[in-house]
Amino acid sequence: MIIEGKTWKFGDNIDTDIIIPARYLNTSDPKELARHCMEGIRPGFAQEASEGDIMIAGRNFGCGSSREHAPIAIKATGIKAVVAKSFARIFYRNAFNIGLPIVECEGAAETAKEGDILKIDLDKGEILNLTQNLKFKIPPLPEFMKELIADGGLIPHLAKKGSY
């Protein structure tokens, strides 16, 4: 799987109340959630982001609430992947489960500037910053997680196997 796109850069400890404030959680409609994505710190983000873009962030991305509405909102803005220095654990699970690829890569997250073009190759395990001509290795995923992704997320995996 290869994802290539323009980046949007955010800082450390981006919490789920920033990604999608709880006052909008009276619906789980992805389009409606996407409209309010990141509005607390960057109003209008959802309108500016375009299909195929990549989100870059610092440490502990997605901390706070367990709301799956957070990765759903990001995905529905058209963002195709999130690259961060580290992720909060519930967000990490949620993103995989709903099929939003997320990648932990300190180097790529540190060096990328907003607007850089990144190429993420999940099969080769590398990220290329095409704007700055930089290359980073991605740590390999556990076999189980690869199986989940290959099946298209947790639910298709369960539907196929009947159990984990």
């Binding site: 367990s66 709301r67 799956e68 990765p71 519930i90 699970r93 949620n94 489960n97 709903i98 189980f144 997320g153 947790l154 639910i155 369960l158 159990s163 984990y164």
Partner: peptide, 17 residues
């Protein structure tokens, strides 16, 4: 804590990874 999809899977299987 987990997200909703994980919880949906627990409601179905009684298990979690």
């Amino acid at each position: 804590g987990v997200g909703s999809t994980d919880l949906g899977a627990v409601m179905l299987t009684g298990e979690i990874w």
